[in-house]
């Protein structure tokens, strides 16, 4: 038995039941992605026309590998949060909504795992 009033118990939680958690993490990943995106875009532009060995050598620089992993993790999390809202807005059938949300969640995690593994493999193989 709680002493909270019904209003007090739900205040700040909203319809998503977890308050500003989703909103905050979307902003947090957005802020992280500003410098990471500028860095990655500039780096990839610098690699235009580069051969296989040059790109591998670039990825195996420790700082580059770390930043790539951070970029991929932040991007895929930001993407998952963004697509979740798009689905909430446009998919109204409960079953389809659930299927779409699960697909987005699983796909984001799989792509994050695969791409981060690829970066680490290149980094560790040198």
């Amino acid at each position: 038995m709680t002493m909270k009033t019904p209003l007090g118990a739900v205040r700040g939680l909203g319809s998503a039941k977890n308050g500003t958690h989703h909103w905050w993490l979307q902003r947090l990943t957005a802020i992280a992605l500003i410098p990471l995106t500028v860095w990655l875009t500039a780096s990839i532009v610098g690699l235009v026309g580069a051969d296989y060995e040059t790109v591998r050598t670039w990825v195996s620089i420790p700082l580059v590998a770390i930043l790539l992993v951070l970029f991929l993790a932040a991007t895929l999390y930001h993407l998952k949060l963004g697509l979740q809202v798009v689905i909430e807005d446009y998919v109204h059938h409960e079953g389809a909504k659930l299927a779409a949300q699960m697909t987005v969640t699983f796909a984001s995690i799989i792509i994050a795992a695969a791409s981060i593994f690829a970066v680490l493999r290149v980094a560790f193989e040198g």
Binding site: Y52, V55, R56, V59, L68, L72, I111, A114, S115, F117, A118, V119, R121, V122
Partner: peptide, 10 residues
Amino acid sequence: LAWWLISLAS
């Protein structure tokens, strides 16, 4: 981007 990185590792 993921495909490009995976192909680089492959």
